[in-house]
Nucleic acid binder design. Structure first.
Lengths: 106, 106
DNA sequence: CCGGTTGATCGGTGAATTGCGATGGAAGAT
DNA sequence: ATCTTCCATCGCAATTCACCGATCAACCGG
């Protein structure tokens, strides 16, 4: 993951509503959840929620699966893990040189 | 750290230039570095760099210390660590609910 | 076929962000 | 005192963001 990608993902996470949406998705068993569920849990218009979802979608943090008349959204745990790793790498890169160890992984 | 704080910090990190600035700060020995150093390493106007620095400052990710005629900037490793912890907590909160078996297939 | 529901997308508004050059104050040098 | 360097801050333009209501395609149940 490059700077731009990390920055992109960070920006997607850089909004409390989006964080909340991720949490809502995580709360559903199996992670299945449709837009209406999210909208019900927030005090925002459906179009706004849909827009936030799109941001998360574009950032690759969630996944959309059409299911009949509604869409289901899933957390992408793989990408979350990847982000975690990239973020860890970023922080390690920022750590003082003296404390730098050799624990790199991609 | 609350959602809003995390989101705030994330947004501060959500720009490649800001990530680069952090990296530049980390590269200097002792972490000391002034605005001119950063500006030299980037192809942006000094005022723009100063603005980005302010964002990082407001997010508490770096620290300013006046030093004679110039200011020195330091990475706030403590806050970075705190962020790391909060971020880890966030990801853990997003992880699949533990009341399930782990061997599931997508 | 028709009515209901879901939800992505469009158009618009206001606020925030990103970038710039210019200004000006503070501190060291002369 | 003056000159110079550093850089935070102030406008200013352009772009993006957040939010909304309205619309419209897709799907399901009669």
């Amino acid at each position: 993951m490059h700077d731009d990608d990390i920055a992109n993902t960070m920006r997607a996470l850089g909004h409390p509503v989006r964080l909340e949406i991720l949490r809502i998705l995580a709360t559903q068993q199996q992670g299945q959840c449709c837009c209406a569920d999210v909208t019900d849990s927030l005090t925002l218009a459906q179009s706004t929620v849909s827009q936030h979802i799109k941001v998360l979608l574009d950032a690759g943090l969630i996944e959309r699966k059409p299911h009949g008349t509604r869409n289901r959204y899933y957390l992408r745990h793989d990408r979350l893990a990847e982000l975690s790793s990239s973020f860890g790498g970023l922080l390690k890169g920022l750590a003082p040189v003296a404390a730098n160890k050799e624990t790199e992984q991609a």
